[in-house]
Amino acid sequence: MNRRLFIGTLGAGALGTVAGCVSGLADDVATFSATPARVSEDAAAEADYKYQGTRERIDSEVVGGQDVEVTSYISVYDRAIDLTGERFGGDALKASVFGVIATPQVSVDGEDFDPVGDLSNRELAERVQSHYSGIEVDRAVGGRALQALGQRFSFQSYEGIATLQAEYDVSVHLDVAQRDHEDDHVVVAAVYPTDSILSEGSEQGRIDTLTRGLEQYEGIDVKLESERSGE
């Protein structure tokens, strides 16, 4: 599974131009910024996931007749998994990806702008499917609720097929949950192989560990990569 493609999916596809309180004003452009979110080091280590960095995404929009610049953050983790079966060649593939997106909620002159908050989990899953060439989502297969960031995150799980390294077709689950936290909207998404092809047991427990380990606060330490809409 290509990490860059997954970041692009969550940043450009699942979110689009996203939208709190105004954080600044530069050249007559109002700027809004989310607080980055990431998984604690202890939780990432327990789940055996590697932190791949946090993408800072900047989008421009007109809200309430005002030009605004919106900064969102996408933190991504992945894990190499030994997949069973001869067709995988015994390779350890980066087959599981976890992402957390934080977007500010914008309000200017009585006009609110928060397209992500208006999307259902199913709609977010469909955005991931339509913007990721290597995954096809088939159907919903259940859900679960977890506590994270002092909130209740309700996951919806979908089943589908993902293509790894442009070569292997793998049955996967796509989990999506979203929740407001402070002045931001937080989306959690994960893609991971189903139990039928894993040699190490279910991956869902690791995803739950990552989710429960989410952190979001001012001054949080993240490894930033910058991106502007259209890039």
Rank of each mutant, 00 (worst) to 15 (best):
L119C: 02
S133A: 15
A190N: 02
A102Y: 02
H131V: 09
R139G: 01
V128I: 14
V62W: 04
I101T: 04
G134F: 02
E56F: 02
T103M: 14
S154K: 14
G201Y: 13
L214E: 07
Q151A: 09
D195M: 03
E136R: 13
F32Y: 12
T35R: 05
S154N: 15
L119I: 01
T211E: 12
S229N: 05
M1S: 13
G85T: 03
D118P: 01
E225L: 11
D180Q: 15
A19G: 08
S33C: 08
K223Q: 04
R228M: 08
A166C: 11
A44Y: 11
E182D: 08
Q105Y: 02
L210P: 15
G13W: 12
G20L: 01
V222L: 06
R127Y: 11
G89C: 00
D59K: 04
E56V: 03
S75P: 08
E182G: 04
R127M: 08
T9V: 07
D138G: 00
G85A: 07
S23I: 07
T211W: 09
I58K: 10
I161W: 12
G205T: 13
G90I: 14
Q156E: 13
G160P: 04
I7T: 08
H131W: 04
R38V: 12
F88D: 06
D180A: 14
Y168C: 06
D109Q: 11
D27L: 03
A26Q: 13
F98G: 01
H185M: 07
Y132M: 12
G117I: 09
I58A: 03
V116K: 00
E41W: 07
V170E: 02
D195W: 06
I135H: 04
R127C: 05
R228L: 08
R87H: 13
V62F: 12
V172T: 07
T71Q: 01
Y51D: 15
Q52T: 14
S72I: 03
G110V: 15
I58D: 09
G150T: 12
E111G: 03
D82N: 11
R55G: 06
G89T: 08
R57F: 10
T209Y: 06
Q129V: 00
G65V: 04
R79K: 12
E136I: 10
A177N: 06
S130H: 10
L210K: 08
F6H: 01
G201D: 04
G110Q: 10
R144Y: 15
Q151T: 08
M1T: 14
L198H: 07
G134H: 07
A30T: 10
E56H: 07
D183R: 00
T17W: 08
D169T: 05
L224S: 06
A148F: 01
V100M: 03
F98Q: 07
T54C: 15
D27C: 03
V68W: 00
D114A: 14
